[in-house]
Nucleic acid binder design. Structure first.
Lengths: 199, 199
DNA sequence: TTGATTACCGAACATTTGGTAGATAGCCTT
DNA sequence: AAGGCTATCTACCAAATGTTCGGTAATCAA
């Protein structure tokens, strides 16, 4: 075989992308180390050079994802908090804006969204490899939303759960239906309905 | 091995139940014909006597599910339609009631709910065995909801999608979190917020 | 230039997988 | 009681799977 030696970081990123794509299409047990390797133009053993086992591929992807997400979401929230401190607490408009930007991130990367949707469902089982990861992630998201809604909703945790549920569900419907409706508009209108206007 | 000859319909039902349970836990590619057979107290070949292949197991389960669902949902809607005809069109209260009863069905069978959530996500890919089934089911659900909302919402299809999304998402969060919140109450409050009151 | 490091390969392995073939035994009809 | 039907078994198979091993060549530091 033609032996092409790639920059390790480039190859790692390539594997990361391919794994997200294929895992989103076929699920964890649906993919094969071999097929993933093929898509990366690398042999079976070549792939295992980067991740010691198939399990570690998934865990590695989640790990990397977490890192990248932190880099994006944290500043987003910080910016919102900044604006908020100008006024008094998080205003309704500000929260709506923040929520919208989260969905925009989803809409911008359908492959990533599909990966999350599929793996999240597969990881429902307590003994799934990634159960803890998605559990923690979900708990943090609900906590975050509840905090944002502290002064805006009578029952912040309940409303937070409703918003997260809507996020999951709309994303999935949007993906299944070939994105044949306006995701952002549907989201905005639901969010506006779920977060009562101050009066 | 002890050869226990079971009534075919009983065995079929047993396989159906076991398949729903295991598919919900481990996904389609996560289960094995052998393990499913074991749980049914039958040999590998014994199971294949009922379904000619692994694929047919899933398709058979979906088929059976559809049949049972029709037997439940259709009368439910018919009853609502009956009540509606007494007044003028579907009233808001009636629709809320109908939606609630759908979620009650979900809550009553967590194993079935998990099966649907997991398979639905795995079937997102166009080439998945069950893609068409879930596509059709989703389209029908959205159509049904939109019809119910025809006179209640300014944009019935949009609101319908929001409700379906909420149904998916809340179900999943509820299952992942060990059902540690009041699903029905959370659903009711969201539905009430999403379907505007007539004025 | 040299030597060490490491990205990557081919081949092999044990195990698991979905599926088949033929035998056998429990049930129903007659 | 006899005979057919079929639910179920044991045994088997070819293919696929995750992982390991020893090697090879590209890159980099000295």
């Amino acid at each position: 075989m033609a032996r092409l030696r790639e920059n390790p970081e480039v190859r790692r990123a390539q594997i990361f992308d391919a794994a997200i794509l294929m895992l989103g299409e076929q699920g964890f047990n649906g993919i094969t180390v071999q097929r993933l390797a093929q898509r990366c133009g690398v042999s079976n053993a070549g792939l295992l050079h980067y991740f010691p086992s198939k399990d570690e591929i998934l865990l590695g992807v989640l790990d990397e994802l977490e890192r990248r997400e932190a880099d994006i979401v944290v500043p987003l929230i910080a910016a919102a908090a900044d604006k908020a401190s100008e006024g008094a607490g998080a205003s309704r408009g500000l929260v709506l804006e923040l929520l919208r930007s989260m969905l925009e991130r989803f809409a911008a990367r359908p492959d990533l969204g599909r990966f999350l949707v599929v793996m999240q469902a597969e990881a429902l089982h307590r003994e799934h490899l990634a159960n803890a990861w998605f559990r923690d992630r979900e708990a943090m998201t609900i906590d975050l939303f509840a905090d944002l809604l502290a002064t805006l909703a009578a029952e912040p945790r309940r409303t937070a759960r409703q918003l997260v549920a809507l996020l999951y569900g709309l994303g999935q419907i949007w993906l299944r239906g070939d994105r044949d409706f306006d995701l952002l508009a549907t989201w905005d209108s639901a969010v506006a309905a779920l977060i009562p206007e101050r009066r």
